[in-house]
Design a protein around this nucleic acid. Structure first.
Lengths: 267, 267
DNA sequence: TATTGACTCTACCCCAACAGGAGGCATCAA
DNA sequence: TTGATGCCTCCTGTTGGGGTAGAGTCAATA
């Protein structure tokens, strides 16, 4: 016979927990002194304790453990229960992995943005490669972009391979304009929405810092530059939303980053 | 302004939870009628609620959410926190996957045993293929097998490819006998213990049902048979522990299954 | 205007699975 | 005999709310 303290050291279950298990009738000590109320545990209790520890390590609740230990004494009788538990655990694993990959997505995007602090507000001429995207075409107000982006993200969010962008097919500003909302993807996928490849080419680009409302000044800057180098522009123009309202916070509009990309004729 | 019920429907947070968040100063309604104490939520509160829902879906506790929303308002400021959370989640995933594979191991073994209900207590002559095992050699009493098996399982348990077995190198019964405790593995691994291949060959086998104490009668049966077919036996003999004390329960000894395998000279 | 039914308020108890601590006996060695 | 542990019961606290009771409020209808 062991006192509760000795038994605790043997089984590596805390004294608190042992008293709790006694109260819950999960592990009743073999003998209880009726005067002092001291608990005394037998060697057989060690075995029971081991079973409890094992089942706990498999994620069973104390209630489940109680019913298992009361009803069964052989592993072959609990295979269904074990299978169920395994399935439940695998469901949990899937959920957690989904969360983890969502977090990964956010972190990737932030990393990408953090790496390009040097090119803010600076006009560049560069060659962009072909870009696979999932997209929807729609007509409406500029401010309704959110809805379209929602659609695209729901369809292909988990395969996203870069920042989302809009294509504009009108060369002047219009209330009701023709827009394609695109999400770059790593490889072709089948979805409800269409895929296509945006062509490679020579682009003049400028990263606009701040709220979308002030993006006009950046357009002015970029068109002035294009005029100065005497090039012709091609449609559609692109707006890449490097950093906008995030997945968690709406964020500070003064920190929004939008890259304007305007294709020019190659010389 | 929305009443708590309306706000609950909009945000899909229960009324109970909203009151709880108010109490915890996590989401304080924009206006509270000082006479009726009715809570009224604004449109801006919807955004805050969304942030809370998002952070909750990432597995943050309410306390964490509170400190995050108080201190930050942009995703780029919380990347470390998100990274930490992701790491924590991945740790959880690893733990759960480990549990899941342990359960898988138990289930596999039980399945294996369940499939062979037909050969109990029945002498068979069969050819066994070569078997890769991890093993320890030791001397002692038969009843000390548990210790040796523990060693082997700790070293290679996760690569186990079948039921554990003992090899006996003495042909008669001895108090202090020479034993090798083996665990079959799927493929060669490097571990503290040695690996080897048990040779293929012709074996007479018998599955003994019940406690190890009565295994003598099964040995008797099998040796009688070998004598009757006039074959010579080879050492070592094998005892395969198809079903013994399990990972969870000690189990019912009457259900233990041990296959005795005795090699015979080929004709 | 009165009433009704739907809503909302606070306050209290409940769950898991113990942990921590207070205050009071029991046990054992010096 | 005297500490020093060890053990006992009882109470509270944790996380994220759920459930219920009894009372007050709101808006629409009769």
């Amino acid at each position: 016979m062991y006192t509760i303290g000795e038994f605790s050291k043997i089984t590596k279950i805390t004294v608190k927990a042992l008293r709790f298990y006694h109260e819950k009738e999960l592990l009743t000590p073999s003998y209880i002194d009726s005067e002092s109320n001291y608990r005394y545990y037998s060697k057989g209790d060690i075995e029971t304790a081991q079973i409890i520890v094992n089942l706990k390590s498999f994620g069973f609740s104390l209630q489940e453990i109680q019913s298992i230990t009361k009803e069964f004494d052989d592993e072959s009788d609990v295979t269904q229960i074990l299978q169920k538990q395994k399935d439940a655990i695998e469901r949990d694993v899937k959920k957690l992995t989904a969360i983890s990959s969502t977090l990964e997505l956010i972190l990737m995007k932030e990393k990408e943005v953090a790496q390009m602090t040097d090119v803010f507000d600076d006009i560049q001429v560069k060659r962009l490669p072909e870009l696979q995207v999932v997209y929807v075409r729609w007509q409406g107000k500029y401010s309704e972009t959110g809805k379209a982006m929602g659609q695209v993200y729901r369809a292909a969010g988990r395969h996203a391979g870069g920042a989302a962008l809009n294509l504009y097919f009108d060369c002047e500003y219009k209330e009701n304009t023709e827009i394609e909302s695109c999400l770059p993807i790593k490889k072709k996928i089948t979805t409800k929405l269409e895929c296509k490849a945006l062509p490679a080419g020579e682009f003049v680009t400028l990263v606009h810092v701040g709220s979308y409302e002030n993006i006009g000044s950046s357009y002015e800057k970029i068109f002035d530059y294009i005029k100065s180098i005497n090039k012709k522009t091609l449609l559609p123009s692109r707006e890449v939303y490097l950093k906008g309202p995030g997945m968690i916070f709406k964020g500070n509009p003064d920190k929004y980053l939008t890259e304007i990309q305007i294709q020019i004729e190659e010389s």
